[in-house]
Simulated assay, not measured.
Amino acid sequence: MSTVVAVLGATGGVGQHVCSAFRASGDRVLGIARRPSAAGSALRLDLAEAAPAQLAAALTAHRTEIVVNATGGWVLSAEAMHLAHVQIVERLVAASTLMPDPPRIVHIGTIHEYGPVPAGTLIDESRRPEPQTGYARTKLAGSQALLNATAAGTARGVVLRAVNVCGPGTTSASFLGAVLDRIRDVRPGDRVPMTIADARRDYLDVRDLTDAVVRAARAPESTVGQVINVGRGEAVAMRQLVDWLLAAAGLPPDTIDEQGAAVQSKGGDWTRADNRRAARLLGWQPRTALDASLRDMWHDAARRYSEA
């Protein structure tokens, strides 16, 4: 008998891949989103407005066994970040206490919850989180709400602290998504002024993140309550990522005319995740090379542009 998996944020860049992965493995997927679409959302529910009892009733009616929280994203205002990253998680936790059989909850957090670290640091789960930005602080608050409820026995959660993602469907609100939008109509010989952070960050293909989510959903009960970092374990220069995306578009590196300016970041200038716990507990490892991920990201976007 197939497992029923509810995916919150089912129409988002990560949520769509999570829905597809569980369907491919034979599970029944209940996609939940504010605006249902052909991407696979079966239940229209505004999680920013829904009371815990309403969410609990919906999950119970579908006999949900696993919930993946893929909501949130690159929202800007303090109010929007609190709503997307904290309040929705608190409502999900409250809903689980109202269910006769509480589901396992896989929550997608972020490596930025640890805050800035010195260059060269390999970030493992023993590091004390000290976030410095509104984005990172609210993401940590959401993760902590689930971890606290799990410790108290009122929820069954696993937190994946993921690095930045790339690959097919990457949102335009992200740095690489914004770069893709700016170069999509560029012709050879054109120059595009752009500010690129002098930073090195860990990036992961969205399909590798999705694989970690599926594994966390199926992992032994001993993984409940765990924080697990998910990344490639490599700190890559931002300019290198841009050059790979340019190559995928058939453009030379000098297409970008780098401009000097301050760059706002959701986290620090260095991220490199320690993957050893993910390997040990989930049997997970990244499989997609970043240059291949960015090629797929470009070709997926080109297909969508042509169909629009």
Rank of each mutant, 00 (worst) to 15 (best):
V158E: 10
T154N: 09
T60F: 02
S25C: 13
A38Y: 09
V206C: 06
L8R: 03
D27F: 09
L251M: 10
S143V: 07
L241T: 00
T271K: 05
I105A: 11
C19E: 13
A56V: 03
R128Q: 13
V158T: 11
V68S: 11
C166I: 04
L43N: 05
Q87D: 13
D198S: 00
I32E: 03
G120T: 01
G13W: 10
V7D: 07
V89H: 10
L55R: 02
V14L: 15
S77M: 01
P36E: 03
W270Y: 06
A84P: 06
A273N: 03
R280L: 10
V192N: 07
A302I: 07
P220R: 07
M99G: 08
I183M: 13
T255P: 14
A24H: 13
D300R: 12
A273K: 01
P102S: 01
S41Q: 08
R215D: 08
I256N: 07
P102F: 00
D254L: 07
L294V: 02
A302P: 13
V213G: 11
V163Q: 03
S20F: 14
E130P: 09
A197H: 00
H112G: 08
L282Q: 04
Y203V: 09
V230I: 14
T60P: 05
S174F: 08
L281H: 00
V213Q: 12
M194A: 04
P36F: 01
R277N: 04
S293M: 02
A248S: 14
T71C: 15
G169E: 05
G268N: 07
Q264G: 13
V192R: 12
V7S: 10
V117D: 04
M194H: 05
L43E: 10
D46M: 02
R63M: 09
G169W: 06
A216T: 06
P52Y: 05
G177W: 02
G12A: 09
S41C: 12
V214F: 11
D257S: 14
G233H: 01
A301T: 05
P129T: 01
A199L: 03
L76Q: 13
A219V: 06
T60Y: 01
D300N: 14
A53C: 01
T11W: 09
A237N: 00
T150G: 08
T288N: 09
A141L: 14
V263H: 00
P118W: 02
L294F: 02
A152W: 03
G177Y: 05
R277D: 05
A247E: 10
D185E: 15
H82M: 06
P52R: 04
A301W: 08
L204G: 05
G12K: 13
V5M: 15
A80Y: 02
V14I: 15
L55H: 04
Y135V: 09
L146C: 08
C19P: 14
R201Q: 11
T170F: 04
A6F: 11
R201D: 04
V192H: 07
P193G: 04
M238A: 00
T60R: 07
R207M: 10
D27T: 08
P103M: 03
A279D: 04
A141T: 10
A302C: 14
G233Y: 00
L176I: 08
M1I: 11
S265N: 01
S265Y: 01
G167R: 04
R191Y: 10
L251P: 12
K139P: 11
E90Q: 15
G72Q: 04
